[in-house]
């Protein structure tokens, strides 16, 4: 399943619906469906904000692949390379005054997906692959 969305924040709800349906079809429970939707929302926000540097600068291509093991989501864009290592981990135990309000998105993606992998190519743009394992009922 593949869909292309305009790289703007009001596409996020539609992208969310698209991956929500795929996660549902893959057999995830409601919390895991939410986790997938959140990870993809955060990833797409990063694409718009960091890779494209704003809205309406390019598209986001979203592919969902369901396998017996789980769900793979591939996000592709043609913006600037996004360096996840440049984003510091949020200080989630710090007192309020020291809390930075950025960096939580990538943190959620890492915590709630089983694998995330970024790939940057001069000619083909940026690709983010995220995988979440499905827990089969009764196992």
């Amino acid at each position: 399943m593949k869909q292309i969305f305009p790289g703007r924040y009001d596409s996020l709800a539609q992208i969310g619906q698209f991956v929500h349906s795929a996660a549902d079809e893959a057999g995830f429970d409601s919390f895991s469906i939410y986790a997938v939707e959140l990870a993809v929302d955060e990833a797409c926000t990063n694409i718009i904000e960091h890779a494209y540097g704003g809205e309406d600068r390019g598209n986001i291509e979203c592919t969902c692949e369901i396998t017996p093991e789980g769900l793979t989501i591939i996000l592709h864009d043609h913006g600037q390379p996004f360096r996840p290592e440049d984003i510091p981990s949020p200080a989630i135990n710090a007192p309020l005054e020291e809390r930075e309000s950025h960096g939580l998105g990538l943190f959620f993606m890492k915590k709630w997906m089983d694998e995330i992998h970024f790939d940057f190519s001069q000619n083909h743009g940026n690709t983010l692959v995220m995988f979440k394992k499905v827990e089969k009922k009764g196992e």
């Binding site: 939707e37 929302d41 926000t45 939580l104 998105g105």
Partner: peptide
């Protein structure tokens, strides 16, 4: 649904 943008 609440993303990190809302948390911010």
């Amino acid at each position: 649904f609440l993303s990190s943008a809302g948390l911010r």
